[in-house]
């Protein structure tokens, strides 16, 4: 078995409380409050979470927020567009750093 990622960890995430129960309690309360409907709908928050899950490349988060997005009524086409938003920002972030490179070339080059 791959020692780094185990699918069963996701459903046992609550066990992370062992060792620091008060911190876990605060975290899970905060987490629940973040995803409650507010100025953004639960569906909008699920799609944002799905995109961010791909950015942080967390397989647990991807599984969890794929289901979460489906449960909030999103379909594959909408979820794929959300992943492309993450991809565009990641790609754009690399590319825009090229401006730093160009500035440095200008400074050091002749």
């Amino acid at each position: 078995m791959n020692p780094y990622y185990d699918h069963a960890h996701l459903s046992k995430f609550g066990d992370i409380a062992e060792g620091a129960p008060e911190l876990a309690k605060k975290f899970f309360e905060y987490y629940g409050a973040v995803f409650a409907a507010g100025a953004l709908s639960q569906r909008e928050k699920a799609l944002i979470a799905l995109a961010v899950s791909h950015t942080v490349q967390c397989p647990y988060c991807i599984d969890s927020w794929t289901t979460g997005s489906l449960e909030q009524g999103a379909d594959l086409e909408q979820m794929t567009e959300a992943v492309h938003v993450a991809c565009a920002i990641r790609g754009g972030a690399s590319l825009v750093h090229g401006m730093q490179m160009k500035a440095h070339v200008k400074k050091e080059g002749m």
Partner: peptide
């Protein structure tokens, strides 16, 4: 009447109704 197209639960009815 909406059923999920897969092995996941149905979402919040009120929010879904608004979006639909």
């Amino acid at each position: 009447m909406s059923n999920p197209a897969g092995a996941f639960l149905s979402g919040g009815q009120a929010a879904m109704e608004k979006e639909w």
